[in-house]
């Protein structure tokens, strides 16, 4: 609303600075709190102070000494990476077809994937629970990877087809005129242009898989395939009298690191990816 005609006065700059500060505090407060908690020693854990009185790595040492956490971390990374890879490959193929080719059934596919994007995931939990048990997929990696791919595909297809529509396909013609074979035209001209979109989509899909809790808690039962968010909720502390809060906080911080890295390095891409479809919608 501001910004019409007004000069960039110092007052305005200070005002914006304050607003920014409010936003930053709003966004970071809960994160900083869990970080602080993770560095508290067991003695000061329950002191209710926002900043640790005593810094310690005790909680981190604890979680990395148990398979409960390390195994979950491996599960989380493996499942999210595999699901992301497959969803992005399938999504890229479908999005290319949607953006570039004309074939009957295209709108149906778009419609179905939109329905899935809006689908209440809990409605799938009961049948999947039963079906996976009978197929022997329950409590396995594929048992989680499959629903992740399914719910990530709509996101991947929409984001990618929005990106693909932005590619000036005349370049393909130009490359052919410049002496490229179809393969060279794809590899040297189209692929480099499509790569940022594919990469962005991969980040968004990874975040989605990394984040999931409902499927992970419903379709797993042991350490074998439990992901970190689920493992967190089962942390009990090494003894009956020990508060698991420290361990939970430390584990929480660990799985937040990749998210923070993505956000720091790929802020622009993530924003573009999240909004690419919505703009034209």
């Amino acid at each position: 609303m501001a910004g019409i005609g007004g000069a960039e006065t110092t007052g305005k700059r200070v005002g914006w600075g304050l607003l920014n500060a409010v936003v930053v505090i709003y966004a970071l407060f809960p994160v900083l709190w869990i970080v602080s908690l993770s560095f508290k020693s067991s003695k000061t854990l329950a002191d209710g102070n926002f900043i640790p009185r005593e810094w310690s790595f005790e909680n981190y040492q604890n979680i990395f000494s148990t398979t409960e956490f390390t195994r979950a971390l491996i599960n989380s990374i493996g499942i999210a990476l595999i699901a992301t890879a497959i969803a992005v490959v399938f999504g890229t193929m479908a999005a290319y077809a949607i953006a570039r080719l004309d074939f009957p059934g295209k709108n149906l596919l778009v419609g179905v994937s939109l329905l899935i994007a809006m689908f209440p995931q809990v409605s799938l939990v009961s049948p999947l629970f039963e079906i996976e048990r009978s197929l022997g997929l329950f409590d396995t990696w594929p048992g989680l990877i499959l629903p992740y791919i399914t719910f990530a595909l709509p996101l991947a297809i929409y984001t990618l087809s929005a990106f693909f529509r932005e590619i000036p396909w005349e370049l393909e013609k130009a490359a052919k005129m410049d002496g490229a074979t179809p393969g060279q035209a794809f590899r040297r001209v189209i692929a480099p242009l499509a790569a940022p979109g594919v990469f962005t989509t991969a980040i968004l899909v990874f975040i989605f898989c990394w984040n999931d809790f409902l499927f992970a808690i419903s379709l797993t039962s042991t350490e074998q395939s439990r992901t970190v968010p689920v493992a967190l909720s089962f942390f009990t502390g090494s003894s009956q009298f020990e508060d698991p809060a420290g361990s939970i906080a430390a584990a929480a911080v660990v799985i937040t690191i990749p998210i923070i890295l993505f956000v720091l390095f790929f802020q622009r891409r993530i924003v573009a990816g999240l909004t690419s479809g919505a703009v034209k919608g």
Binding site: V23, A27, V31, W210, V228, P229, A252, I255, I260, V263
Partner: peptide, 12 residues
Amino acid sequence: TTLIPYGIVTVV
């Protein structure tokens, strides 16, 4: 910074 709440694991 606003992307952090979006990206962070809900359980965390």
